[in-house]
Design a protein around this nucleic acid. Structure first.
Lengths: 353, 353
DNA sequence: CTGAAAGCGCTAACAT
DNA sequence: ATGTTAGCGCTTTCAG
């Protein structure tokens, strides 16, 4: 009735080999300080000799934890935000997790049904924490996570009042710098192509645009303090996009129709900037000669865009790293301490403008 | 000594509620046919009422499996092959796994040390199977996997003699179609920019080039049957790249130096095609007027390249799907049946050339 | 067809 | 400091 060993040595065998009890072996493995050096050495030797590797499942079962975290990616977003952004995030997360024995579970959520099932998923204690990217304002997942008291970190935030821990780029600052740059270069009729305004990131970038315009005394709207509201004459310099190239095209056409004299455009994403540039060229405008473009670097295509195109770079990989670090901390302390991290962006000037 | 319930209902509770034994509940959950309809109904009702979700750790421990597979990505490759390729693969894998309760573990391997640790990782039975992308010819991982009798599926293959299961795109066919296309359009001095020839995928694409050249009676080398060997006058139309844009530039310059009269180029990746195009333009050649370009679509930038640029499209997402499907099959049958799947590519003609 | 019982390998509380 | 013991929740014989 015994002995259908799966081949691999168990903690028990290590204990025997080392001439100690199982408890001691467990303590050594988990780095408990309450072990004599002698015992510790013996155990470590036995582990090495036997090639012992702890069984995760057993550990998870007994310890009521999984040593795994989930990276949740809503499927639609994966397309929108151009993939390299995620790649970098993932790279960062991976880098941070490398020293840990924490596993990274990839969880793609594509349907509302799967979204619903996610609750169960978490409930089943299948992960110690959750990393969430591309959260929309009305995303119920963060609240669910909070209810379940599940450690979680968002990439970005739903609003200024985000309660769940998050790591975000300084979108306002980045946008502001981008627009200020255009203005510094002598552009006066600077327009912006926004992202979908139900996303905080899009609103933040629009805010940055407004602030920069206001700072320069140009009529970019009512802002200056950070409020997204505000309307006025400058509104005709604002066109809504949706972070897609086609959206960028549409918005650029709209802008051109409303203000043929536009001489600078800040697009809230490089993909939209690419679309805008295409339209500008079709319309016979020189870029950046007639119209200068600055985009937010969300995607790899930035590297393949017009070399003269300046853009706002986000510390994407660093964000991934930070997300993981924050999550690990949150898991370590059982307390629900929320952390809000905003990382600086950088204006990468490609050429003349 | 008991009762520090974690809150969630257990199989035992379901059994009590349904008025059956634990064994029966387990059978129902695992879809065993050896259960009466009555018992099954009772158990299902109890499960629904209690909101029972099986505990994966317990299951893994008792069943000696994990219901998880690992997607292994060598870090360096992640950069090379431009990320969208992976994104699509992952999307496909995710889609296929959605109906399963199989988990996807993301495993980034960046250092030789981590590569070494991977053996332990597997040994600890932490996954039921492995998905491997971007395998180099000298990659030891596939062999390790085979030794361990671990179900595994590669994306691509190390050579024509690959022993491990794989899912690959028809690189030879794609390259051949691309070059044939150029020749059909009247190009006669068609060159190729290859990938690193220590990768099968690069050799396969070169083979395709050679075959098409030979078919047309143009001196593309000695080939025709698939051998990569072969030299001759046509060799000067072949330049080695490394799948990077800069590599594409270098190769293009080389080509131009050797054969200023080149009128068509098949680049083994779109990233290199982009580099080649940049050089061509710098040199004052019109693309595709003077020199027509066809690239293999590995990356998203294809979408942003010259609209006149025709390219070879791979069924990337489908490949991911297939990989997952094949792996699941391999896991299901305990036997080590190797499957080799080659999916067709498609020539996407953008415009005139 | 279905209970009962024996673990899977580990952690953690309890005695020493 | 360390051995012992009792489970964690599930799968799987083994008897009926």
């Amino acid at each position: 009735m015994n002995g259908r060993h799966s081949g691999r040595p168990t903690l028990e065998e290590v204990a025997v080999r080392a001439g100690v009890g199982r408890g001691t072996v467990s303590r050594v493995i988990n780095g408990s300080p309450r072990v004599s050096d002698r015992a510790k050495a013996a155990v470590e030797a036995a582990i090495a000799e036997l090639g012992y590797v702890p069984n995760r499942a057993a550990r998870a079962l007994a310890g009521n934890r999984t040593d795994a975290i989930a990276l949740v990616i809503p499927e639609p977003e994966t397309r929108l935000f151009a993939e390299p952004y995620f790649s970098d995030i993932i790279r960062g997360i991976g880098a941070e997790l490398a020293d840990t024995d924490m596993q990274l579970l990839l969880t793609l959520i594509r349907t509302p049904k799967e979204r619903a099932r996610f609750g169960q998923y978490l409930a089943a204690h299948r992960v110690d924490g959750v990393l969430l990217v591309s959260v929309h304002e009305d995303d119920p997942l963060p609240d669910l996570l909070e209810q379940l008291e599940m450690p979680a970190v968002l990439n970005g935030r739903r609003s200024d009042l985000e309660s769940v821990s998050y790591v975000d780029a300084d979108n306002v600052g980045g946008a502001r710098a981008a627009v200020a740059h255009l203005i510094d270069r002598g552009r006066r009729r600077v327009a912006t192509i926004t992202g979908p305004l139900d996303m905080y990131v899009a609103r933040a970038r629009l805010d940055g645009y407004r602030q920069a315009m206001a700072d320069a005394g140009l009529g970019g709207g009512a802002a200056g303090g950070g409020a997204t509201g505000g309307s006025g004459a400058g509104e005709e310099l604002i066109a809504a996009g949706d972070f897609t190239e086609e959206g960028g095209r549409r918005a650029m056409r709209e802008l051109l129709a409303r203000r043929p004299d536009v001489d600078g455009v800040f697009a809230a994403s490089d993909v939209m900037a690419a679309g805008a540039r295409a339209v500008l060229r079709e319309e016979g405008r020189r870029v950046p000669g007639d119209v200068a473009l600055v985009g937010f670097e969300d995607s790899a295509i930035a590297r393949h865009m017009d070399p003269a195109l300046t853009s706002v770079r986000q510390p994407t990989e660093e964000m991934g790293r930070t997300m993981a670090r924050v999550l690990l901390e949150e898991i370590a302390e059982r307390a629900a301490v929320r952390r809000h991290v905003v990382l600086a962006t950088e204006l990468v000037q490609r050429e003349s403008v």
